[in-house]
Design a protein around this nucleic acid. Sequence first.
RNA 1: CGGGACGUGGCGCAGCCUGGUAGCGCACCUGCAUGGGGCGCAGGUGGUCGCAGGUUCAAAUCCUGUCGUCCCGACCA
Length: 567
Amino acid sequence: MRFSKFFIPTLKEAPSEAEITSHRLMLRAGMIRKLSSGIYSYLPLGLMAIRKVENIIREEMNRVGAQEVLLPLVQPAELWKTSGRWHRYGKELLRLKDRHNREHCLGPTHEEVITNLVRYEVRSYRDLPLNLYQIHTKFRDEIRPRFGLMRCREFIMKDGYSFDIDDEAAEETYKIMYEAYERIFDRCGLVFRVVEAETGTIGGSFSHEFMAVSDVGEDTIVYCKNCSYAANIERAEVKNYSISEEKQRPIKEVYTPGYKTVEEVTSFLNVGPERIVKTILYLSDGKPLAALVRGDHEINESKLLRLLGCESLNLAPPDVIKEITGADVGFAGPVGINIKIVADNAIKGMRNFISGANRTDYHFMNINPGRDFKVEIFGDIRFIKEGDLCPKCGGELEFKRGIEVGHVFKLGTKYSKALRATYLDKRGKEQYIVMGCYGIGVGRTLAAIIEQNHDEHGIIFPLSVAPFSIYLLPIDLKDPEILNTAEKIYKKLRERGFDVLYDDRDVSPGIKFKDADLIGIPIRITLGRYLKEGKIEIRLRRSGETRIIPLNELELTLEKIFKYGTH
RNA sequence: CGGGACGUGGCGCAGCCUGGUAGCGCACCUGCAUGGGGCGCAGGUGGUCGCAGGUUCAAAUCCUGUCGUCCCGACCA
């Protein structure tokens, strides 16, 4: 590609709205432009990089026997009502009506459509297993899109769905897909970790997330320094709990005028937050519930939801809190309230703690579980925090930020049951198909690659996803020798199948160097002062390593670089 | 949804407090010059100051509303 003909509007300065590196660099390199919040156009250079990532995904999917399909973006409401997600998915599902006033939505994911497709075509165990995937645009009406391609409303996703005859076969498919995912992100040049994860609205029994390690990641991942345990903080189990040996003291009411938060109460009573118990009131499937966690712990609603096995869980509104406790918000406690109490495991071992007295401006001191109130369920309902130990081996844990680039779910029969996707087994008996689902955020993967591969001058593309592998940079096109050689090299390299970006612009060398660095093409060939001696310069973007070589050794040198990499 | 900020040429910003000629850098155009890191000189194009209403002799500037964008959180996953 000739730079002068290429639609690549590079920017010296990035728009102020771009906060993180990948977003700034993608804008500056002329890869993307924003149309509106969370909605982007892909320019040629950006699309080329996207395609590179997609093709890695395609190769690895095809290698494990998955087949590519393309499913509709606009989906009828009926299908979503059947699965129950029309009501459950919430505002992220963009709903629209057609001219006949029929309800539709833009697909945020495609379990319904694919299951619907398969249920009509699969009759017998002989038709299984089946593994289908697609790469196309999804729409999720995110509450807060941010960070460029990192969290968009409209985004490119690879989503795959597997269909197996039973759990065992599904398990095997899951493993194969998991390994394919590892190969994909390896080939993309990402530093990543696989963690146990929450399943969210997709549902299913368990899942793993593929997390690109990055400080700008929106998730926190926890992993053990000692063993292989790794989990999303949403999911990470807490197993270490201590039991206090303190003697029980008589309960005592104290006047705490206006002191509501843990912070206020600790400073007023001059105690540590670990002496306090927070009482959080919820409506669980509409019924009131008190959840207890220690003052220095944070409640994890996903864990609570899972423990309760309920459909909905919402914080109780202030008027309900007042009704239950008989006090203003901020003075709730477990003693003397007449609703179901669920407590974190840590509460079990606590003695003489402080909590609200269910009376405005009062707290109780020296509360003891069992003696002063009864807990219906003890369980792990809090977030893990720094200092907690590995639930597997008791080792020390590390906390890092991660970008969720891939997510694999074992769905089981959630959708096949809802949409009645069945087959006849060998004995002629009807069985539900066992499903799995596998997603990769393509744009987000590209953003993660740039987050992990850049310097102060710009992007440093790994060869595997670089939109071009070679940047041909003639210093001065008015010098006939340089011009002729550049044209010759460009022609020859293209004939040899190399993808070359030829900077044939009549601009100062500085501009070309800056753009070359910004765009991040792995190999730069510079034609300039050494040409008089029949030599050219080859420079690697990543290492900065520069070699001056005779012109006739160019192809040999390139072959070596492609063989041994650009590091 | 709560909190905060912003909207002035394609991009980055100043001007607003204290109302009175719309300004700077980059980009762009022309010419000259230059050719190893966003190079120099000279000249030039382009903005009803997000939109609507109000106050005023006069509004980018003050007031009200509205739309959009970004950040933090909540929510969602």
